[in-house]
């Protein structure tokens, strides 16, 4: 068995960065996120804290991403694709909730008829080093959403916090290769896998998608949506929210098209030219977000789109708590039809 002694983390990351773009969790400007290694001055590795404020989804789905340039001259137009250069990428320290979210993104961007070329160029060469979670935070509820915090998946290597070192366990062929490339930076040592701690937050989602299918027009949605300000922070911090807009940046008739994160919380998201908006009211947008997470995604892809990371609970300025919402929805008694 291999371990990475904590004193050697920088050495290991430097070695990986020789051939790959490496991303690590860092504390930055009062928050935390996944950022390229080596980090910029002021950043501090955030391996020991729980979830980063921003999820690692930006490694595969950046907040903004150039798609193609265009140049119009007279009546002619030229278009050039400007996608990311394909190169090996390693993301270090991904927790099970965020790993499960990447699995959901894979379903969206790589299946159902079309492969998204921009996503694929970032995702395919990506090696994920997952970190087993042993101490659930006060807002963590991944186990309730069917995620095993000790078993990030998909993953190429799993690391276990042993105190002075990380237990290192390759889980894929690419993980094996990566392990070999670290050579003597890793030490030989037997270790016992730690066990998971107690979750403070529990919720029962058994039968929830089926139940929600009959609750679209339930009056409870208006009540639940009442405090929501449609600020969208839940959607930006969510590791599995993937909705995007495509916009243009131009100077005169030249410029580029880029995509950027969008949010179903905003009226413009569904507003059509001419003014018709199928989700024109707050509670319709709120309902769509929760049903997408808890019912629609399940129906389409066979898995929940909430992985229980708890970021939206922490960030919501109005204290909206998805666990409480699930509980309220589960409490509703429906007439048996």
């Amino acid at each position: 068995m291999k371990v990475l002694v904590k004193d050697k983390i920088n050495t290991a990351l430097n070695r990986l960065a020789e051939n790959s773009q490496v991303y690590v969790p860092v504390h930055r400007e009062g928050g935390s996120r996944f950022a390229p290694w080596p980090t910029v001055p002021g950043d501090e590795l955030a391996l020991d804290s729980l979830n980063t404020m921003f999820s690692p989804k930006e490694v595969v789905l950046p907040q903004t991403e150039k798609m193609y340039t265009f140049a119009a001259r007279g009546q002619s137009v030229e278009i050039k694709e400007t996608g990311e250069e394909r190169k090996e990428r390693v993301v270090f320290g991904v927790r099970a909730c965020d790993s499960k979210a990447i699995a959901a993104l894979d379903e969206v961007f790589l299946t159902r008829g079309y492969e998204d070329g921009f996503y694929k160029a970032r995702r395919e060469p990506l090696i994920i080093i997952g970190k087993a979670c042993t101490q659930p935070g006060p807002n963590c509820f991944c186990s309730a959403m069917g995620v095993d915090p000790l078993e990030p998946d998909p993953v190429d290597v799993i690391i276990y916090d042993l105190g002075d070192a990380y237990g290192w366990e390759p889980r894929s062929e690419r993980g094996q290769k990566l392990t070999q490339s670290l050579g003597d930076i890793l030490a030989d040592r037997d270790f016992q896998k730690p066990s998971a701690g107690e979750f403070q937050l529990q919720v029962d989602i058994n039968g929830l998608p089926e139940k929600l299918a009959g609750m679209f027009e339930h009056p409870l949605w208006e009540e639940l949506a009442e405090p929501c300000m449609n600020c969208g922070i839940c959607t930006y911090l969510c590791p599995s929210c993937y909705c995007f807009d495509i916009q243009v940046k131009n100077r005169g008739t030249e410029g580029y098209r880029f995509r950027c994160w969008d949010s179903c919380m905003y009226p413009e998201y569904t507003m059509m030219a001419g003014g018709h908006n199928p989700r024109g009211s707050k509670h319709e947008r709120f309902r769509n977000r929760f049903l997408h997470k808890l019912e629609f995604f399940q129906e389409r892809y066979g898995t929940s789109l909430c992985t229980g990371c708890g970021r939206c609970i922490v960030a919501c300025p109005q204290g909206i708590n998805i666990v409480s919402i699930i509980k309220r929805l589960q409490e509703v008694e429906l007439d048996v039809r």
Binding site: G113, Y242, D262, M271, M272
Partner: peptide
């Protein structure tokens, strides 16, 4: 039907009615 669309290939999210995408 019509809805606002950005991608046309069932990824960008906005044209859903329930779990169906109008574009796809």
């Amino acid at each position: 039907l019509e809805m606002r669309m950005k991608c046309g290939i069932g990824k960008c999210g906005r044209c859903n009615i329930g779990s169906e995408y109008i574009c796809l």
